[in-house]
């Protein structure tokens, strides 16, 4: 039995919140550079260059790359042979978020009630926390700062089995096309297929948490990811939706078994800021 003090989790979350917001991940920067090479729109290239310049400036001055420093998504994979001590795990994560966003001069963007009392909670808590129990004694923590521009343009559909692959492709293309400039393209597209209404949204988010360029283990889905990436980049949106060939930087699919009568699909969009960090304690 391995013992982990949740205060270590707290400190880790705090650090990841700041780093995710100041430093563009090298894999994302590479995607910008790749897009720059294939982009034919002059304005599109100018915007991609601004994104690269912004990344350098943000890192140099420890300024958030984007003013929407997001809602904190925290995904914990904890081995069943791990014993957590020093307090409650969820509280520790939220303290980490509060410290990271306060001490790191990040924006506090959460309201305590969605409808009747939209008062800012003041420290960007609560985080959206997901926990999976996994074999062994690992403790993996994934942090994402999720901006709402792209989140608002995300969509979920309960398709039917008869809709098939074409139905899924059509729904993904339509979602990205209608999100247009509002999701801050070039976007990263997380797709969930299967499961149930509640699970498919989480699958789409989990797809966003995967590394850039990682492919689904099943070759059929890996091919679908590549086909969709190619077709999305023909939509014409381009950087910031002002026209061009760089509409999506990556497409990732997560799947789950589902009911004989169901074909749930969720498309969770992320903006080009794409702030994800993973660590193992």
């Amino acid at each position: 039995m391995r013992t982990i003090d949740v205060r270590e989790v707290e400190e880790t979350v705090k650090k990841l919140a700041m780093e995710a917001n100041y430093y563009v991940d090298p894999s994302v920067k590479e995607a910008f550079i790749k897009a720059l090479k294939s982009e034919e729109s002059e304005l599109g290239r100018e915007i991609l260059n601004q994104m690269l310049e912004n990344a350098d400036l943000a890192a140099r001055e420890k300024l958030p790359t984007c003013q929407d420093t997001g809602v904190a998504i925290v995904y914990v994979e904890v081995g069943q042979d791990v014993r957590l001590v020093g307090g409650n795990l969820y509280d520790a994560i939220n303290r980490g978020v509060a410290k990271g966003y306060t001490e790191g001069y990040l924006r506090k963007s959460l309201v305590m009630d969605p409808l009747f009392n939209r008062k800012n909670t003041g420290d960007n808590t609560p985080a959206m926390i997901h926990v999976d129990i996994v074999p062994g004694d690992v403790f993996r923590l994934t942090f994402m700062a999720k901006g709402t521009g792209a989140e608002n343009m995300s969509r979920l559909a309960m398709l039917t089995p008869a809709d098939g692959v074409e139905g899924v492709k059509r729904f993904v293309l339509k979602t990205v096309a209608e999100a247009g400039p509002n999701a801050c393209p070039p976007v990263v597209v997380g797709i969930g297929i299967g499961g149930t209404f509640d699970m498919v949204g989480w699958l789409a988010k989990k797809a966003l948490l995967r590394p850039m360029g990682s492919r689904h283990p099943d070759p059929n889905y890996a091919r679908l990811e590549m086909e969709l990436l190619d077709e999305l980049n023909k939509l014409g949106l381009g950087p910031q939706g002002l026209g061009g060939l760089s509409t999506a930087l990556d497409v990732r699919i997560e799947t789950a078994p589902c009911h004989i009568g169901a074909l749930p699909v969720a498309v969770n969009l992320d903006c080009h800021a794409h702030r994800v960090r993973r660590v193992e304690l």
Binding site: Q50, N54, E61, C66, G147, G149, Q240
Partner: peptide, 29 residues
């Protein structure tokens, strides 16, 4: 950043106003 609804595009004509976009996601710059 992003598009306006077609209704607002019409309102901008009616009231003689413009909508400008700045690049999203480069807030440091």
């Amino acid at each position: 950043k992003g598009y306006r609804s077609w209704r607002v595009v019409e309102l901008l004509k009616k009231y003689k106003a413009v909508y400008l976009v700045a690049t999203g996601g480069v807030g440091a710059l």
